[in-house]
């Protein structure tokens, strides 16, 4: 059934095939763009709703890798992405922290831990439920083996340590975020009193800057 090839018909057939196929795919892309975007947004919302209480809008900060979740202008909390090195590779979590500094819940985004051991970080109920309402002011954020209050997964101390470290890093990000949020309010009152007290000081307080 094969046709004899010559330059003309090879170019024509190949060219026509590619044109036709690209047209079909272009059309399909346009038709499916909306459902794809919707599915992606839903996935993000679902991930965040697992780690924070009810919210109506969410905003992503690319640089700090965190989501600010609000419910009608009220700050519901921050969902912070945090990555550490686990036993088998990168361990990525999303940690939901409410404004009072308490961990609302955590969820694993991706991991390469050993099945049956570290991989239990996504299935072991006892391990997962201890993060709900974890208050770092009251409980120590290290595994019990290191003198802390975190129950490790059986025979997976390394993964558990990495998990605790990821939560700790997320809380550090939260601390800087809440400082920035509150310093925005203090700076205007603070700079006047500072200038009065240290008239000779070289430090100049500009609105919004916090010096440590």
């Amino acid at each position: 059934m094969a046709v004899k090839s010559n330059l003309t018909n090879m170019v024509t057939v190949l060219g026509l095939t590619c044109l036709l196929c690209s047209a079909i795919l272009g059309g399909a892309y346009v038709l499916t763009k909306e459902p794809i975007d919707k599915a992606a947004a839903q996935k993000t919302n679902q991930a965040i709703s697992q780690v924070l209480p009810h919210f109506t809008e969410v905003e992503y900060n690319e640089e700090g890798r965190y989501y600010t979740a609000k419910d009608a202008e009220n700050l519901v909390g921050y969902a912070i992405e945090s990555t550490t090195v686990g036993f088998g590779g990168a361990l990525s979590l999303i940690v939901g922290v409410t404004p009072d500094g308490v961990v609302y819940n955590t969820s694993v985004l991706s991991h390469s831990e050993t099945p049956g051991l570290g991989a239990k970080c996504t299935t072991d109920q006892k391990f997962m439920s201890q993060w709900k309402g974890f208050n770092p002011a009251v409980k120590k954020l290290t595994v019990t083996k290191d003198g802390g209050d975190v129950d490790a997964i059986t025979a997976s101390t390394i993964t558990s340590r990495a998990y605790a470290l990821a939560v700790e890093n997320a809380l550090k990000t939260f601390a800087t975020l809440s400082e920035e949020a509150s310093s925005g309010a203090f700076a205007r009152t603070g700079s006047r009193s500072d200038a009065e007290e240290d008239a000779s000081s070289e430090i100049v307080n500009e609105g919004g800057q916090n010096h440590e």
């Binding site: 049956g116 059986t154 025979a155």
Partner: peptide
């Protein structure tokens, strides 16, 4: 590989 918790305890 199959029973990592039993075999590594």
């Amino acid at each position: 590989v199959s029973f990592p918790t039993y075999m590594t305890t």
